[in-house]
Each structure stands twice: as C-alpha cells, then as structure tokens.
Computed example of a mutant assay.
Amino acid sequence: MTPEPVPLDLNRLRRALIPPDGRYSRMDLAASTGSTNADLVAAAAVASGSPEAERWPDLSALAAEEQLAGRGRLDRTWVSPPGSSMIVSVLLRPENAGKPLPFTAYSWLSLLAAIALIESVGDVAGVRAQLKWPNDVLVNGRKVAGILAQLASPKMTAAQTAVSSSAAGPVVTAGPIVIVGTGVNVSQSPDELPVETATSLAIEGALTLDRNFLLPAYLDRFAALYLAFCAVDGDARRPLDGGESLLQRATAAMVTLGTQVRADLPGNKSIFGLAVGLDMTGSLLLTDASGTTHTVSAGDVVHLRRHVAGSPGGSGAACGSAAASGPREANHSRRARGSGASSRYA
C-alpha cells in the first residue's frame, strides 16, 4: 500500500524553477483541469505581441493535481486520479538569437522531454527507465510515462495582418509555439492502473514519491536540454554543451532500437522490421526482411522481440501503402507516413 500523495507546493516549485535559482519564466498549478496541454494551447492562441502573449513567454509551465480529460497520441484519453501522477505541460517558443528554430527541430522536443524524464527519475528516484519510440517511457518493459507535443500558432494582430497582406511575400511575425505535456504514474498501485502493461514509480520501488522533488528535477533537466538544443539551432547531431548530441542521447536511451517491431500507421497500415536507428528528424528507421529501409514518422510501434546477431533483418514483409507491389531493390529507402504529421504531435 502506497502512502497518501504529498500535495504539490506551488511556492516551493516556484522557488526551485523561477529565477534566480531556476530557468522558467512562469510556473502555475491547477487543482483540477481537463488537460494542461489544452489549457496552454488556449493560452498560446492569442495575438503575437499582445499583452496576453507576453504573460506566457518561453518556458512557461502548468502542472495539475488532477486531470480529467487528458489527451494522448492518436486522440486517446488519459485520466489521472488526484495526486497520483506528475502532470505538467510546458509552453515553448523555440528560437536562437531571436530566430525561430527550423521546423525539423520541433519533432525532437518530445524525445528531448523523454530523455530529461529518464535522466531525472534515475537521479532522484533511483529508477532506471528507457525510451520507447516515439515518446513513451518504460520501466522493466512497462509504461510509466507518456509525452505529447502539440504545435500551436499565435494569432496575428490586425496591424500584422495588414502588413502581411500588403507585402510581396508572407511575413513571419513569430515561430510556432510548442506545448510539451508529460504524464508520469507516480503512486498508483497495480489495481489503480488501467492496463497490465502500465506501471508506476511506486511499483518500481522509487526512492521517493514526493512530486515536490520529482517535478522540479524533471523540469530543470528539461529546461537545460531545451536551451542547449536551441543554442545549436535545433540540430540533433550537434553536441549539447560540449557533450553528446541529442541524437546520441536518444539512441543510447531507446530500447526500441535493435528490436523487431511492428509499426502501425494511420489508415490501418503496418510495417514489420528491425528498428535500426533514427534519422535527423527523429523518425524511426526500419529495415524489413527484403532489406528495404523505411522511415516511419507517424504511428504506434509494437516491440516483437530483440534482434539476434546473424539473424535476418526483418520479421515479416512490409505491408500497406508503405510497401509497393512488385519487386523491390535491397537497401532502397522508403518514407512511410500516415497523415503527414508526426505522432509526436497531436
């Protein structure tokens, strides 16, 4: 039986996360909400440059004790009982020296959040976690946390709209806003979890279940990685603060790589193959039985079995639209996309 959850202390969180000791511009706490992501998406949908937009700058965080209508990937619902989970969303305005990051960088932000969570729960709670592509965090093969990143575009003021309509080309007034939401099972017992494939920090023997330690540790690690990523213009291949690149850190943390998987794509299409790596956008590279490499940027991944050295590369042929009928040349690269939007975004 787990102890009663310790309520989140907003003053304590703000002391840890807001300057002079922290990196966050804003830290709020809701007793109960439908979805912290939805709340921040609504906050982001204001005119760029307006007073309301200024109240939600880069690295604004919203946590909640209870979430009633959380949203996971592919529009799945996610509900958490009061105090049992670590629920937080962060509003980001990714840029470097006033210039928005390239759009290819945004797909890395959910992976960045997963890495920050894995590293922080290891340091603070003593729990060894791993990353399942694209944005699930596992402990001993069971899901302890999920991450959802959503794109949001600020509205334009009437003056900005007039300038844009009179210009020869489009005027970019601000880059996209990204909302990164994280939900972690903290104190749930097995009978409080919805499926047998889920777990919690309590079940995994965490050294602490106090979210007043866990949440600042995660958010601090997330901010450090995010700011370092912005400083290299969102290039996942470049070293962060003189250390490993984001691509290297994601590869090291990802249990999916080296595993035979089934990638279920939107539109009831699937690909079977060996997960061999990530590309520069964070998409998953799968090699099927024929030697064809597919780039999967959207969909769910089911782990089938670990790859054994010397065995064939795939565990079945690709099917669906990603596999064209007729013969295919080995090592030919194909890009398998679903709706065109990465599953790392809503």
Results as ranks from 00 to 15, higher is better:
165 S>K: 15
167 A>L: 10
168 A>N: 11
169 G>T: 15
170 P>A: 14
170 P>I: 10
170 P>T: 11
171 V>N: 06
171 V>E: 09
175 G>I: 09
175 G>E: 08
176 P>S: 06
177 I>S: 14
181 G>Q: 01
181 G>K: 01
183 G>I: 00
184 V>R: 00
184 V>L: 14
185 N>M: 09
185 N>R: 06
186 V>C: 04
186 V>I: 13
188 Q>S: 04
189 S>K: 09
190 P>T: 09
191 D>T: 06
191 D>P: 01
191 D>Y: 01
191 D>C: 02
193 L>G: 10
194 P>L: 05
197 T>G: 13
197 T>N: 13
197 T>L: 13
199 T>N: 04
201 L>M: 09
201 L>N: 00
203 I>P: 04
203 I>F: 07
204 E>Q: 03
204 E>G: 00
206 A>G: 14
207 L>F: 04
209 L>V: 03
210 D>E: 08
211 R>V: 00
211 R>G: 02
211 R>I: 00
212 N>E: 04
213 F>N: 13
213 F>V: 15
214 L>C: 12
214 L>E: 11
214 L>H: 11
215 L>W: 02
216 P>V: 07
216 P>H: 07
216 P>M: 10
217 A>V: 02
218 Y>T: 00
219 L>E: 05
220 D>I: 08
221 R>S: 10
221 R>P: 02
221 R>F: 03
222 F>A: 06
223 A>T: 02
224 A>M: 13
224 A>C: 13
224 A>F: 11
224 A>E: 15
228 A>N: 14
228 A>Y: 10
231 A>V: 10
233 D>H: 15
233 D>M: 12
234 G>V: 10
234 G>W: 07
234 G>H: 06
235 D>Q: 05
235 D>I: 01
237 R>W: 02
237 R>A: 13
239 P>R: 02
239 P>I: 04
239 P>Y: 03
240 L>Y: 09
240 L>M: 09
241 D>P: 02
246 L>N: 04
246 L>D: 04
247 L>T: 09
248 Q>P: 01
248 Q>D: 07
251 T>C: 05
251 T>I: 05
251 T>M: 05
251 T>A: 13
252 A>Q: 14
252 A>C: 08
252 A>W: 08
253 A>I: 03
253 A>L: 07
255 V>C: 15
255 V>T: 15
256 T>S: 14
257 L>H: 07
260 Q>D: 08
260 Q>L: 12
260 Q>V: 09
262 R>L: 06
262 R>M: 11
263 A>C: 13
263 A>R: 03
266 P>A: 12
269 K>A: 14
269 K>M: 10
272 F>N: 08
276 V>L: 10
280 M>L: 15
281 T>N: 14
281 T>M: 13
282 G>M: 08
282 G>V: 03
283 S>I: 02
284 L>M: 05
285 L>N: 05
285 L>D: 01
288 D>A: 03
290 S>P: 00
291 G>S: 07
292 T>N: 10
292 T>Q: 13
293 T>Q: 11
294 H>E: 07
294 H>D: 06
295 T>E: 10
296 V>C: 11
296 V>K: 06
296 V>W: 07
298 A>Y: 01
300 D>E: 14
